[in-house]
Amino acid sequence: MSSREEILNRLRGNVRETYDFPDLGFRKLEFADPVAQYVETTVTTAGARVFEIKPTDDLNEKIREAYPDAKIIASNVPGIKADKNPDTVERAQDLEDVDVGVIKGEVACAENGCVWIPQTMKEKAVCFASETLVILVSKQNIVSNMHEAYERIKFNDYGFGTFISGPSKTADIEQSLVYGAQAARGVTIFLTE
């Protein structure tokens, strides 16, 4: 008998009582103004910045404004002037020296600042290895809680997606909070209409 069968048989043999999946219809946290709450959560607990972007704004100028010292920008978002493209770099390692990665978020959640970022590029390293991130989020796509977020998120053929709430952080040395552990050290959310 294979280990697989052995394990499955033992599991089946060891069940006594069974339980039903519960009803999750209870009332969940809702904000009167999820956009305002999302901004509040993001700039306080999540440790990111939020820039409000008007339809007349030039995104490339705003990126400069957010990160004036940046030398290498990486993005595959149409209209963004980038020095590297995560779709065309040969290897993930080629994105190691990126100062700003510009990526798109699809759903944002007000209760905890999470933004859903599906992989839309060949090398997702741009989402993690870049020193800093600019994440584009539309005000139309902000929900109150994670239950709603999970109902909305979609996968594409790349088969990867991540919720990011802000810069990478750690408190592993004597519990003092430090931003910029292994992944992006800073995150700026561009909140579009």
């Binding site: 990867f160 991540t162 919720f163 709430s165 990478s168 952080k169």
Partner: peptide
């Protein structure tokens, strides 16, 4: 309220 990354 969340970990920074929740990756699928």
């Amino acid at each position: 309220a969340t970990t920074v990354y929740t990756s699928h």
